[in-house]
Write a protein that binds this DNA or RNA. Structure first.
Lengths: 164, 164
DNA sequence: GTTAGTGCAAACCTTTTGCAGCTCT
DNA sequence: AGAGCTGCAAAAGGTTTGCACTAAC
């Protein structure tokens, strides 16, 4: 379990593992979802009603700095907040549907290749990488086509501007 | 020049090309830099002191929606604002040094391959893709090593905690 | 017993919105 | 003329900070 690895890492840095942090750690890791600070706060509050939103932000900052969680933007679908996931899996891209918001994870060798090329091309030392791809999932492509057809129908029925 | 293509695209959408928008368009395209809304606002103000910050945001939104500019996060180095660039070049990744903030652009086939794989793997229709890589540039790697050495020296000279 | 961490309130920064007046076409 | 656009002020959303109190080691 990744939580254990994270605990060890924190202990090594002399960071205290408080009750609040344990709760947040659990939530981030086990959900497997991509939660933002606010969602995390609400979930954490169910386990400790006193836990403050500020503590969530401070904990996330800590974990981020320690390279224990990755911060995502998910193409700013749904706002400008950030999303978090534990950094246990292999490097992957996030593929997000701009219509329904569904997030898929893509693992594949182009990502590793890209990293290696950037390292050798610029003599760059890669610390973190983030690839986000926005578009339409198979399901929403169909729905969008349908919507476009309906819109065209409406336009043909009702006159372009002022419906007399 | 890309500005012309953008003008045509806007005209087609029935969007007016006002004096303010021309100024902003010029700035975004010709600088070749990755400017954020505030920088853009300040530069635009030099050409038209009346131009409002809100107009900058509205124009950016318009260009973004039209797929004419891309919005970047640059790994949130320097804050939570967004950066903009015209969408004329080939797809590329942004490589940003977490120490000095320098941004490099990387073009390479892994990016195209990634896109194609995501499309075929999920039946996904890709609209926009963003890859950002954070780490240390060759120059800063040297400086960081130096800094680490100096810190070690300091620690060895002065006792760990309370300097008696 | 120290030092780090928490909660609370308030500030901060970036971005958006409502509305009256202005301006392109 | 008329829709679109701008400026201003104010609000909204997300995140950070200062400080006194509390808890982990």
């Amino acid at each position: 379990m990744a939580v254990q690895a994270i605990r060890d890492s924190l202990k090594q840095r002399g960071v205290r593992l408080t009750r609040q942090r344990q709760i947040l750690l659990e939530l981030i890791d086990k959900s497997g979802l991509h939660l933002d600070a606010e969602q995390l706060y609400k979930l954490a509050k169910e386990k400790d009603s006193k836990l403050n939103r500020v503590t969530v932000y401070r904990t996330l900052k800590l974990l981020k700095e320690g390279g224990l969680v990755d911060e995502l933007d998910l193409m700013h679908w749904g706002g400008d907040q950030h999303y978090y996931e534990t950094r246990t899996k292999q490097e992957h891209a996030h593929v997000i549907c701009l219509r329904c918001g569904k997030v898929e994870e893509f693992f594949g060798e182009p990502l590793q290749k890209l990293r290696r090329q950037v390292e050798s091309h610029f003599g760059f030392q890669v610390v973190l990488a983030r690839t986000e791809i926005g578009g339409y999932c198979a399901h929403c492509q169909v729905l969008r086509a349908q919507e476009a057809r309906e819109a065209a129908d409406r336009a043909a029925t009702a006159p372009p501007r002022k419906p007399a």
